[in-house]
Each structure stands twice: as structure tokens, then as C-alpha cells.
Write a protein that binds this DNA or RNA. Structure first.
Length: 222
DNA sequence: GCGACAG
DNA sequence: ATCTTGTCGC
């Protein structure tokens, strides 16, 4: 894997914010990935912590598509060097995720990232950060909201409503399973919102979270 | 100044 | 995210 830009090291919070503002224009919001009918490898990305937070543990679970069977996995453990600050999650989690991705024998065609993409105050959440640095298509799949307002979507599986912020649609609030709390889907990189929603639904079976995310979560935590 | 705030 | 058992509901 070769990154299209180095991951910034040792930045202060205000420097990290400035960096995000400079990178945000690099996010591609249209589809530049295989048609869903041609997809073969999708991956879930998640991060967990060990040793009271001193160690960051990132996991990538690659699944076949559309059958969603495990194909390959990678785990990377790195010392935690940045605190959790809303809006700056990438600086805490991305280094470990990039290290895990570098271990894969073959990169997936798209990343489903645990967190936000464009649904971020500066339009550069973790999914955008990882997508732009690796130049891989990526989708932000958040379990809760960081920013934006929305109307509660219908209770049936597949129902969704736009997530808006400052006059723009930054993502969608998706009911992945009937009657469960919705997911916050947003563009990470190289994918449109409609395609991101379709792929998230295609990766979701019996549970609220996509199988990709579940697999990665088990490796990063459980 | 007062809330909100991915994981 | 993480510290943690049982319990309510389908």
C-alpha cells in the first residue's frame, strides 16, 4: 500500500485542525470504485484499546462480496499518542489503522469505517482521512452523531433521512434494521452517498451493524 | 458565555 | 473507547 500523503506526526490540536482544513478538498464525492455487481472484497475497520488506553489496537477485516465471508484480517497495536478530542479522532486512531492496512496481502476495494466521513465539522472525519491517505474508496459508518441535524427516519429497514449541517447534506441517517437505532452514513472518499447507502445495506444482514464492522470489532475488541 | 461532542 | 452482571424483551 502506498499512501498519497504522509500521516502527520506530533501535531498540536490546532495544527491538526488546520491540517484537516487543507486536506478536506481532496475528498472525492462521486463513485470511483467497481460497480457493486463487480465488487469482490469489502473491509471493515475498527479500533479498540488495551492497557487502560495506552495501546491502540486497530483491526481490518476483509470479507468477500456479496457473500460476506472472511477472506483476510490484520491487526496492528501501537502506543496511543493522541487524546480523544471530538473532531480529531483520526489523529488518535488512523496511525494504527494505516499500519494494519499495510499488513494486508491485497487491499480491499472499499473500506467501511467505524466513525464519520463528511459528517464532520470540517468535512474530514476518520473515513475521509483514511480514504484520502490510502486513496481507497471509503464510507463512514457511525453509530452515533457527531454533527448535523435530521428528521428521525421511518422505523422500517432501509428507511433513511438526510443529515444536514450548515445548509448542506453531509450524510444520511439510515435504519439498517427495523426498529433499531439508526446508523450515520457519510461519504469517506471516492463514493457517492447513494452508493454508500446501498453498499452499507448490502453488507448488513441480521444485525444493526454491517458484517464488515462486526468482524473488525471482534478483532479490535472482543 | 453556554451546550454539544465520532470512538 | 473502557470499567462490568444481571435483566427485560422478542
Amino acid at each position: 500500500m502506498h499512501a498519497s500523503a504522509p500521516h502527520p506526526e506530533g501535531l498540536t490540536p490546532s495544527e491538526a485542525i488546520a491540517w484537516q482544513r487543507r486536506q478536506a478538498p481532496r475528498v472525492e464525492t462521486t463513485d470511483r470504485l467497481p460497480a457493486l455487481a463487480e465488487l469482490t472484497r469489502v473491509a471493515g475497520v475498527d479500533v479498540g484499546f488495551e492497557d487502560l488506553g495506552r495501546i491502540t489496537r486497530a483491526a481490518v477485516a476483509v470479507l468477500s462480496y456479496p457473500d460476506l465471508q472472511p477472506v483476510e484480517q490484520a491487526i496492528a497495536r501501537l502506543p496511543t499518542t493522541f487524546p480523544y478530542i471530538p473532531g480529531l479522532l483520526s489523529f488518535r486512531e488512523a496511525p494504527a489503522v494505516l499500519a494494519a492496512l499495510a499488513q494486508l496481502s491485497a487491499l480491499p476495494e472499499v473500506l467501511l469505517v467505524d466513525g464519520q466521513g463528511l459528517a464532520h465539522p470540517r468535512r474530514f472525519g476518520l473515513a475521509c482521512h483514511l480514504g484520502v491517505l490510502t486513496d481507497l474508496p471509503a464510507i463512514g459508518v457511525g453509530k452515533t452523531r457527531l454533527t448535523g441535524t435530521y428528521v428521525e427516519p421511518g422505523q422500517e429497514r432501509g428507511a433513511w433521512s438526510p443529515l444536514e449541517h450548515k445548509g448542506e447534506t453531509i450524510g444520511a441517517v439510515l435504519r439498517s434494521r427495523s426498529g433499531v437505532a439508526p446508523l450515520f452514513i457519510s461519504i469517506g472518499h471516492r463514493i457517492s452517498l447513494p452508493t454508500a447507502l446501498a453498499l452499507t445495506m448490502a453488507c448488513t444482514r441480521r444485525y444493526r451493524l454491517p458484517e464488515t464492522t462486526r468482524a473488525a470489532h471482534r478483532l479490535a475488541s472482543g
